[in-house]
Design a protein around this nucleic acid. Sequence first.
DNA 1: TTTTATTATCGTAATATTGCAATATTACGA
DNA 2: TCGTAATATTGCAATATTACGATAATAAAA
Lengths: 107, 107
Amino acid sequence: MGVSKFSIHTENINQIASIAKVFAHPARVAILKHISEQEGCICNDLVEEIGLSQATISQHLSVIDGAGLLQGTYEGKKKCYCLNIERFEEFQNLLNSFFLTTKSNCC
Amino acid sequence: MGVSKFSIHTENINQIASIAKVFAHPARVAILKHISEQEGCICNDLVEEIGLSQATISQHLSVIDGAGLLQGTYEGKKKCYCLNIERFEEFQNLLNSFFLTTKSNCC
DNA sequence: TTTTATTATCGTAATATTGCAATATTACGA
DNA sequence: TCGTAATATTGCAATATTACGATAATAAAA
């Protein structure tokens, strides 16, 4: 199979899983860290910084972007990515409330 | 390929990704929620509750267990799982510091 | 000891993910 | 307009994940 069964779970459960999936690959975690560390965002430095091919980095970027975590603006030829802090905090809060409620309901 | 390149990343980055991976599937999120909601843990109720086969649930349980998030004790024939709160909180803290440092370093 | 209930593991099929080379696209400058 | 730099997309190949039936292993009860 290989297909995750989403339909059998609640909306909240699927949401938590989708959020976690974004962070479930080291390249994407590294990209987010690098983007945030850079003053004013970065671009294809990620390829050199992280050591994966341009195609692969671009692919990971689109996953992160698809989750709504990025704001990209063009500066000349270069596209500069920046973290969408509101969305990022939303993710943080959703994960945190999962942790909190799970913890407090436990045996 | 299909192989994630872990060796090119820092320990901390790989750690965040590994933690997120545990929560990156709705069945595992559902399992954790059910386990925590039940007074005193549960066992194969998960199969009925969640609607996946016993083999699949057992597989997901071993992923969660492999991350150190479970404490299993036998009560007669039944094996009752319980959340390892210390480890769970460790995960929460690691993720939270990732969120915090990423956020505060951002442009 | 045999049966029964519960959980784990194995084998396998279907699908997803990861990574890269090659190629397209985009936007600027000459 | 053409060339060039930067990024995105496409098309694989390799590997991982998910799911389940079948089968083992385990532990209590008959």
